[in-house]
Computed example of a mutant assay.
Amino acid sequence: MKQKVITVLLAMVMLLAIPTGLSAAKAESQSVFVNGKKIAYAQAPISENGTTLVSAKETIEALGLAFSWDKGNKRIIASSGEMTISIILNEPVATVNGISIFLGTPAVERNGRTMVPLRLLTDGLGASMETKGNQISIKTVDPSKSKYYTGLPLQITNSAVKNLGTEKIVVNYVEYYYAGGAVQAYDFTASLNARGKAAFNNATVKPGENFDSNGTNYTFFGRTVYSIVVGEEETVSKSYKLAKQLYGNGGTIEKQMRALYKQKEEDYKKKLKEELKKNNNVPFKVVDSSITYDSLGYPEANIELWNLTAKTIVSFELSFSTYDAYGDPVKGGYPYTNRFYGKGANVKVLSGYSHIFTWDLYSYSDTTKLKNIQIDRVAYSDGSVWKRK
Rank of each mutant, 00 (worst) to 15 (best):
G126L: 06
N158H: 09
L276K: 02
M83F: 03
M115V: 11
K244R: 12
N97M: 10
A194V: 06
K241I: 07
L308I: 09
L9G: 02
E91P: 00
V236M: 08
S144T: 14
K26G: 14
Y261C: 01
D360Q: 09
G196K: 05
Y268M: 11
I46N: 01
G297F: 08
V34S: 03
V330L: 06
V349W: 02
P299W: 10
T216W: 00
T235D: 02
D70P: 04
S146H: 08
I291T: 03
K4P: 01
V34M: 08
E265N: 14
K262R: 09
D267Y: 08
D212Y: 07
V32W: 05
R258H: 05
L10G: 12
Y149G: 05
L63N: 03
F284D: 01
A243L: 09
E232S: 13
L103W: 05
T157W: 06
A25V: 10
S321K: 15
K145Q: 13
G36Y: 05
S365D: 11
V32T: 07
T312W: 03
Y226G: 01
N35Q: 05
R223K: 14
A24T: 13
G215S: 06
G231M: 09
S80R: 08
V378T: 12
Y362Q: 09
I77K: 05
S290W: 01
S213R: 09
K273A: 13
V116F: 05
F340M: 06
E233W: 00
L9I: 02
N90T: 08
L10A: 07
K71W: 02
G248I: 05
F200A: 03
I356M: 12
Y364F: 15
K273W: 01
T157P: 15
K38C: 04
V5H: 04
Y336E: 06
A325T: 08
E58H: 10
A66I: 11
L350M: 09
Q135D: 14
I60S: 04
V286H: 07
L10N: 10
Q184N: 11
A62P: 09
K278C: 06
D328F: 07
L10Q: 10
K145W: 01
I138R: 03
L350E: 09
K343M: 05
D70M: 04
A40N: 14
S137W: 00
A107S: 13
S365M: 08
G344V: 03
S80C: 08
N49Q: 12
A190W: 02
E265A: 10
K4D: 02
E265P: 01
A42R: 12
N279I: 07
V34L: 10
S23Q: 14
T157V: 11
L242M: 13
A325S: 14
L16N: 12
A179M: 11
V287H: 01
L16V: 00
E304R: 12
Y293N: 06
K71T: 14
R119G: 01
Q30W: 07
A78R: 14
L15Q: 14
S68P: 00
S31M: 12
L154M: 07
S80W: 01
T166W: 00
S159I: 07
I85T: 06
